[in-house]
Amino acid sequence: MFVTKLTTALAILLSFASVASAQSPTRIQQFNAWGAYSYTAGTGKVCYVLSVPKEKSPANVDHGDIFFLVSQRPGQNISYEPQAMMGYALQENSKVVVKIDAREFTLFTKGNSAWVENAAEEPALVAAMKGGKAMSVTAKSRKGTPTSYSYSLSGISAALKQIETCR
């Protein structure tokens, strides 16, 4: 099941890349709950780490495929960009909140994805992920349904270390 979800995630990620010039992602290595991947796109190599939630709420709705990833795109000068990807459209102008231990980070939404509202906080979010014990993500679907997800942070540091030298 985990491999199926990761395969779906890879297909979704490719849809955001320049599909005509992108190659299929390659899994570099799995580190507990986090996998490290790379592929080549028109702008160069893209590397990322990705995980799926260990718990989803509410239990009575179809969440689709849910992922949290951190990507590196050296060809676009993007380093360690966190992103939440939902299996549904997010409510317009809503915020997604990532909570790691006692710290909260606000993400803006577009379509089914969310990114850190203040890009200057991206390194702090990644550092919190590396040193954190628990991570949760809360969002609101286009229909207004509040959702929440919990992620394991086990393996995040090793996975990020694996893509550190992405070129």
Rank of each mutant, 00 (worst) to 15 (best):
133 K>Y: 15
23 Q>E: 13
29 Q>I: 08
23 Q>L: 12
65 D>C: 05
75 G>Q: 04
71 S>D: 09
141 S>M: 01
56 K>G: 01
59 A>H: 04
77 N>P: 01
43 T>V: 14
128 A>D: 02
150 S>E: 07
103 R>E: 09
14 L>V: 08
103 R>V: 10
79 S>Y: 03
147 T>V: 09
119 A>W: 13
114 A>G: 02
75 G>E: 02
44 G>K: 07
40 T>I: 14
77 N>R: 05
141 S>K: 03
110 K>C: 12
121 E>R: 15
91 Q>R: 14
84 A>E: 09
133 K>E: 11
132 G>K: 02
29 Q>F: 12
104 E>F: 13
30 Q>V: 03
150 S>Y: 11
86 M>K: 05
124 A>F: 06
120 A>W: 04
13 L>G: 11
60 N>Y: 01
80 Y>N: 07
130 K>A: 08
74 P>C: 00
34 W>P: 04
104 E>P: 10
62 D>N: 14
48 Y>T: 12
119 A>M: 07
98 V>W: 07
112 N>C: 05
118 N>Q: 14
114 A>L: 01
83 Q>P: 06
56 K>M: 03
53 P>Y: 04
96 V>P: 05
61 V>L: 00
27 R>S: 09
95 K>F: 13
110 K>N: 11
100 I>V: 03
156 I>M: 10
145 T>M: 01
137 V>M: 08
53 P>E: 02
20 A>S: 12
13 L>I: 13
89 A>V: 15
61 V>T: 01
60 N>I: 01
112 N>K: 11
69 L>Q: 09
23 Q>T: 14
20 A>V: 13
38 S>N: 14
136 S>L: 04
32 N>E: 10
93 N>H: 15
76 Q>L: 10
87 G>K: 00
74 P>D: 00
89 A>Q: 13
102 A>R: 13
148 S>R: 00
56 K>Q: 03
138 T>S: 05
38 S>M: 10
69 L>I: 09
65 D>I: 04
143 K>L: 11
99 K>I: 02
24 S>V: 08
122 E>R: 09
37 Y>H: 03
157 S>A: 08
76 Q>S: 07
108 F>T: 14
140 K>V: 06
136 S>C: 04
39 Y>E: 12
110 K>Q: 13
101 D>N: 05
102 A>P: 09
94 S>N: 07
48 Y>I: 13
116 V>F: 03
144 G>D: 00
105 F>L: 03
76 Q>G: 05
119 A>N: 12
91 Q>N: 13
78 I>D: 00
44 G>L: 06
102 A>I: 11
142 R>I: 11
31 F>P: 06
93 N>Y: 14
142 R>W: 12
83 Q>R: 10
62 D>T: 12
102 A>C: 08
55 E>W: 15
19 V>C: 14
58 P>F: 00
31 F>E: 06
136 S>Q: 07
86 M>C: 05
97 V>W: 05
50 L>H: 10
35 G>T: 11
65 D>G: 06
69 L>V: 14
139 A>D: 01
83 Q>M: 08
111 G>H: 02
75 G>I: 04
20 A>I: 15
67 F>G: 02
151 Y>A: 01
127 A>L: 07
63 H>I: 00
145 T>A: 01
118 N>C: 11
109 T>Y: 06
156 I>D: 06
114 A>Q: 02
122 E>F: 05
43 T>F: 13
16 F>D: 05
98 V>Q: 07
131 G>K: 07
82 P>D: 01
143 K>T: 11
148 S>N: 00
130 K>Q: 09
